[in-house]
Design a binder for these strands. Structure first.
Length: 812
DNA sequence: ATCATAACGCTTTTT
DNA sequence: GCGTTATGAT
C-alpha cells in the first residue's frame, strides 16, 4: 500500500470517527466495523442500541469507508488535504471532508435491522428518524415477524397461500387444535392443546413437514408422538385451507421460500447489503436460518447479543446460535462491550459473580467507572405477606426521602407472586402498575369485532367465522353451524361458501332463512371494506351487525363497559390510520395481529411497576426489588436438578440484578404459599453466589435465618443439589410452623385425601390416568410433600408433586 | 340459551 | 388458592 493510500485511509477514519465523539473505543470499533460477519457481545447496559443506530448512520453516510482499504476513484491529494484541515479544526470544511471520506454510501432500503419486539423496533425507527431524517423511513427496521409478513405478502403464493393470508394468534391456534381433537375423537388429557402446539413449533423449528414428523414419530414408537403427528398434519391442512398462518408459520414459510426458491432468495440477498440482528441470543433455529439466508449474499451480517441474557430457551431460542457464530463464519470479528453505563459496582459485581457459575457462555465481565454505590440489601421475610410489606415499607421510605414511585420496580419469577405485592401496595394507597399480557385485545367484545374484520378480509377463515356467526344472536344455532361445517368438510369448501349457498343443501333448508340475511350483511360490509376507509367500516360494522344495539339494549354495567371498550377500539383505529397513513383493512389487521403488547399506554403514571423478570428485560430502574429469592421459586422447582435449565435460571437472575441502577433489594420468604399450600423455603442459591461483601442484611434478620442453613445436611442424592428438610431437628420457633405444615399435608383432612407418601416407594409400578404405566424412579421429600419422578413407559420421565398427582396415580 | 357448579391445572411467553 | 373452562341442569 502506498503512502498516499495509507494517509487517505487514516484521515478518512478519523473524519468518520469525529461523528461519534460520545462513544467509547469499543463502541466506536463496533460502529466502524461494517464489512463481513461481526459479533457484538453487548453486556447489559452497555449502550448497544446506540451502537446499532450509529452503525446504521455510518453505513448510510460513509458506506464501507471506515472498514475498507479501497479508495474512491476520485481520491486525490486535494481531498486528503481537505480532510486533514478539517481534522485540524477547520469546521468550514466539514461537508467537503465528509464527502471525501465516503465510499459508496448505502441506500436505506439495503439495510435490514431486525429486533424481537415491536417496542424495540419502534424505538430503533424513532431514533433513526431523529438522527437521519425522513430517509430513515426506508430502512427495514422490523421485528422478525413483521419482516416475514412483508416478505410473505409478496411471496406466499409460491407456497400455495393466498397473499391475503391472515395471522392466527396463540388463542386462535389453541382453538384450532381443540377443534381437531374433537373432530378426531382424541382426548385432550392425552394431547393437551398447548403441548401439541409446542410439538408443532419444535417440528417446524427443525424444518419438519407433517410427513417427516410422522415418519420420525413412527420410528420412535412413541404413541403420543404419533398422535401429535396426526394433529400436526390436520393442523397444517386446516390453516392452509383457512389461508392462515400462526406466528411460527411466518418464520417457517419465509425460510422455506428462501431455501426452496433460489430466484426469490437471490433477490433478497442482493437487496440487503447489510443485515443487523438484535438480541441474537434469543433467536431460534428458524430465525437463525432466516438471518443466515438473508445475509448469504453480501455476508455483511452483524449480530448483537448477550449470551448471559438468553432467557427464552423454553420457547425454542438456542444460545448455540451466538456461541457458535465464530465457527459459522471463520473470519468473524468479535467485539465485547463490557463497560456498563447503568449500574454501580456492587450491583455489577454481584451480577458478574452469579453468572460466572454458568459453563455455557462466552465469558464477559461488566465494569463501570460510576463508583461502588450502595451495597445490595437482602431481607429474609417470614412469608410472602411480610415480604410484600417490607417492599412497600422500603418504597415509602424512599419516597419520603424524595424518590419517585416510578423509580421503583418489583420483579418476580412468577406472575402469581404479584398478588401479595399488589395487595400490600393497595393497603398503603398505592396502585401499582402490573405488567402482564395485553388485556385489551383479549376481551371478548374486541375479539368479536376483530373476528368480523378478519372474516371480511378473508372469508375462508372458518375459525373466526364460527366465532361471530351467531354474535349477536341471530338464530343460527349450534346444530346449523355443525351441519354446515360437515358439508364444508365433505366438499372441501370454506364454511362461508357453504352458508352462502345454503339453499343448495337440503340439510340447511330450514336454516336458509336465517343464513341468507347474515351472508348478505357480510357481503355488504365487504364492499364497504373495499370502497371506504376503516373508520366508515367500523361504524358500518357496529350498526349492521347489531353489535352496538345488542350492548346498548342490555343495560347492565357489564354491557356498558363493553361498549366503552368497543369505542376504545375505534380510537385505536383512528390513531392507527393517522400514524401509519394506511387506511386499508389489510394493513390494520397486520398491525394488530403482530402487536401483542399494547401495554405501554400510560407509562408516564407515577407509580411502582410490578412485573416478571422476563418482562423486565431491556428495562432499567433506579431501585429494583427482586422478590422470592428462594429455592423452588427462583430457581424454579422444575429447573432444580436440570443443569441446562438451571443455567437459564441463573441468566434470569443476571437479568434481574442488572435492571437496577442504584439500589437493589433481594428478598426471600422462609415460607410461602404455592398452589394453595404453605411450604418452608430456603434462600436461593443465587444469593449465596453473590460474594458477601456486596450484601447487607438488615440487623433484625440475622438471628432468624440461621435455621435455614442446611449446608450440614447430607445430600440424599447427588443429582439433587437442593435437598429439602427431611429430618426433624431445626430449633424453634420456625420448627413449629414447619411441623404444623407437615402434619397437615402428609395426612390431609380433606375428603379427597391424597394417597399418603408412605404408600408409594421407589421402584413401584404405577398407573397414571393420562400417562399410563410407569415406574417410580425417585422420591424426594419437599416441604411436607414429595416430588415423585416417574419413568412412564410411553410418556417419558415426569416429575410430579405427589399431593397434586395422587388422585391420578394408583399402584399396579 | 344461560347460569351454576365442578373440575382442572399451574413457570417464564418478545411474535 | 384461584382463575379458567367444561358440563350439566333449568
Amino acid at each position: 500500500m502506498d503512502d498516499f493510500t495509507k494517509n487517505y485511509i487514516d484521515a478518512r477514519r478519523k473524519v468518520i470517527a469525529k461523528n461519534f465523539p460520545r462513544l467509547n473505543a469499543k463502541q466506536k470499533e463496533a460502529v466502524m466495523a461494517t464489512e463481513g460477519p461481526l459479533l457484538i457481545l453487548a453486556g447489559a447496559g452497555s449502550g448497544k442500541t446506540t451502537v446499532l443506530i450509529n452503525r446504521i448512520a455510518n453505513l448510510m453516510k460513509y458506506g464501507r469507508a471506515s472498514d475498507s482499504n479501497e479508495l474512491p476513484p476520485d481520491a486525490n491529494g486535494e481531498k486528503l488535504d481537505v480532510m486533514r484541515r478539517y481534522l485540524a479544526g477547520d469546521e468550514s470544511l466539514k461537508r467537503e471532508a465528509e464527502e471525501a471520506a465516503a465510499l459508496d454510501p448505502v441506500a436505506p432500503w439495503q439495510i435490514l435491522a431486525i429486533t424481537f419486539t415491536n417496542k424495540a423496533a419502534g424505538e430503533l425507527k424513532d431514533r433513526l428518524n431523529a438522527m437521519l431524517g425522513e430517509t430513515a423511513e426506508d430502512i427495514w427496521a422490523k421485528t422478525f415477524h413483521s419482516a416475514c409478513v412483508r416478505i410473505l405478502r409478496k411471496e406466499a403464493p409460491l407456497l400455495g397461500y393466498p397473499d391475503s393470508f391472515t395471522i392466527y394468534d396463540e388463542a386462535d391456534r389453541i382453538a384450532v387444535i381443540k377443534r381437531i381433537l374433537k373432530d378426531e375423537n382424541m382426548d385432550e388429557k392425552v394431547y393437551p392443546p398447548r403441548w401439541a402446539a409446542n410439538c408443532f413449533d419444535q417440528a417446524r423449528n427443525r424444518l419438519q413437514t407433517p410427513a417427516m414428523f410422522a415418519r420420525a414419530a413412527e420410528k420412535s414408537g412413541d404413541f403420543r408422538m404419533q398422535g401429535a403427528a396426526k394433529l400436526y398434519e390436520a393442523y397444517a391442512k386446516r390453516l392452509m385451507e383457512a389461508g392462515a398462518m400462526d406466528f411460527d408459520d411466518l418464520l417457517y414459510n419465509t425460510v422455506r421460500i428462501l431455501r426452496e426458491f433460489p430466484e426469490a432468495r437471490e433477490r433478497y440477498q442482493r437487496k440487503f447489503k447489510y443485515v443487523l440482528i438484535d438480541e441474537y441470543q434469543d433467536t431460534n433455529n428458524l430465525q437463525y436460518m432466516m438471518a443466515t439466508l438473508l445475509a448469504g449474499g453480501h455476508q455483511n451480517i452483524c449480530v448483537v447479543g448477550d449470551d448471559d441474557q438468553s432467557i427464552y430457551a423454553f420457547r425454542g431460542a438456542t444460545i448455540e446460535n451466538i456461541l457458535s457464530f465464530e465457527d459459522q463464519y471463520d473470519h468473524a470479528r468479535v467485539i465485547r462491550l463490557e463497560q456498563n453505563y447503568r449500574s454501580t459496582a456492587h450491583i455489577l459485581d454481584a451480577a458478574n459473580a452469579v453468572v460466572a457459575n454458568n459453563k455455557g457462555r462466552k465469558g464477559k465481565k461488566l465494569w463501570t467507572d460510576a463508583g461502588d454505590g450502595d451495597r445490595i440489601t437482602l431481607y429474609i421475610a417470614k412469608n410472602e405477606d411480610d415480604e410484600a410489606q417490607y417492599v412497600v415499607r422500603q418504597v415509602l421510605q424512599a419516597v419520603d426521602r424524595g424518590d419517585n414511585l416510578r423509580d421503583h420496580a418489583v420483579l418476580y419469577r412468577l406472575n402469581a407472586q404479584s398478588r401479595a405485592l399488589e395487595q400490600a401496595f393497595l393497603r398503603h394507597g398505592i396502585r401499582p402498575r402490573i405488567v402482564k399480557g395485553n388485556p385489551f385485545f383479549e376481551r371478548a367484545e374486541i375479539k368479536d369485532l376483530m373476528a368480523y374484520f378478519f372474516v371480511l378480509l378473508n372469508p375462508a377463515d372458518d375459525l373466526r367465522l364460527s366465532r361471530i356467526i351467531n354474535v349477536p344472536a341471530r338464530g343460527i344455532g349450534n346444530t346449523t353451524v355443525e351441519r354446515a361445517r360437515g358439508i364444508a368438510e365433505e366438499n372441501g369448501l370454506p364454511l362461508f361458501t357453504v352458508i352462502s349457498m345454503a339453499e343448495a343443501f337440503p340439510e340447511l333448508a330450514k336454516s336458509a332463512g336465517k343464513l341468507k340475511p347474515f351472508v348478505e350483511m357480510m357481503n355488504g360490509l365487504s364492499s364497504t371494506a373495499h370502497n371506504e376507509g376503516l373508520e366508515a367500516l367500523y361504524d358500518a360494522l357496529l350498526e349492521k351487525t347489531g353489535y352496538a344495539a345488542m350492548l346498548e339494549s342490555a343495560r347492565t354495567d357489564e354491557a356498558a363497559n363493553k361498549l366503552e371498550n368497543v369505542r376504545e377500539l375505534k380510537n385505536f383505529i383512528v390513531t392507527h390510520v393517522r400514524e401509519s397513513g394506511d387506511d386499508t383493512l389489510a394493513g390494520f389487521l397486520d398491525e394488530v395481529s403482530l402487536y401483542t403488547d399494547l401495554q405501554a399506554v400510560d407509562l408516564d403514571e407515577n407509580t411502582v411497576t410490578l412485573m416478571t423478570i422476563h418482562s423486565a428485560k431491556g428495562l432499567e430502574f433506579p431501585t429494583v426489588f427482586v422478590v422470592g429469592m428462594e429455592e423452588g421459586v427462583f430457581p424454579s422447582l422444575q429447573a432444580i436438578g436440570e443443569s441446562e435449565q438451571m443455567e437459564e435460571e441463573r441468566r434470569l437472575a443476571y437479568v434481574a440484578i442488572t435492571r437496577a441502577k442504584k439500589r437493589l433489594f433481594l428478598t426471600s420468604a422462609r415460607q410461602r404459599m404455592v398452589f394453595g399450600q404453605t411450604a418452608p423455603h430456603r434462600v436461593s442459591r443465587f444469593v449465596d453466589e453473590i460474594p458477601p461483601e456486596h450484601i447487607d442484611r438488615p440487623y433484625s434478620d440475622l438471628k432468624t435465618s440461621a435455621w435455614f442453613d442446611f449446608d450440614d445436611v447430607p445430600e440424599e442424592d447427588a443429582g439433587w443439589s437442593a435437598p429439602a428438610p427431611k429430618r426433624a431437628a431445626p430449633p424453634a420457633p420456625a420448627v413449629r410452623d414447619w411441623q404444623k405444615t407437615r402434619k397437615k399435608t402428609i395426612a390431609p383432612p380433606a375428603p379427597k385425601a391424597a394417597a399418603p407418601a408412605a404408600s408409594f416407594h421407589v421402584g413401584d409400578r404405577v398407573e397414571h390416568s393420562a400417562f399410563h404405566a410407569g415406574t417410580i424412579v425417585k422420591m424426594t421429600p419437599m416441604g411436607g410433600d414429595h416430588l415423585v419422578e416417574i419413568q412412564f413407559d410411553a410418556a417419558g420421565l415426569k416429575r410430579l408433586m405427589l399431593k397434586a398427582a395422587a388422585r391420578y396415580i394408583k399402584k399396579i
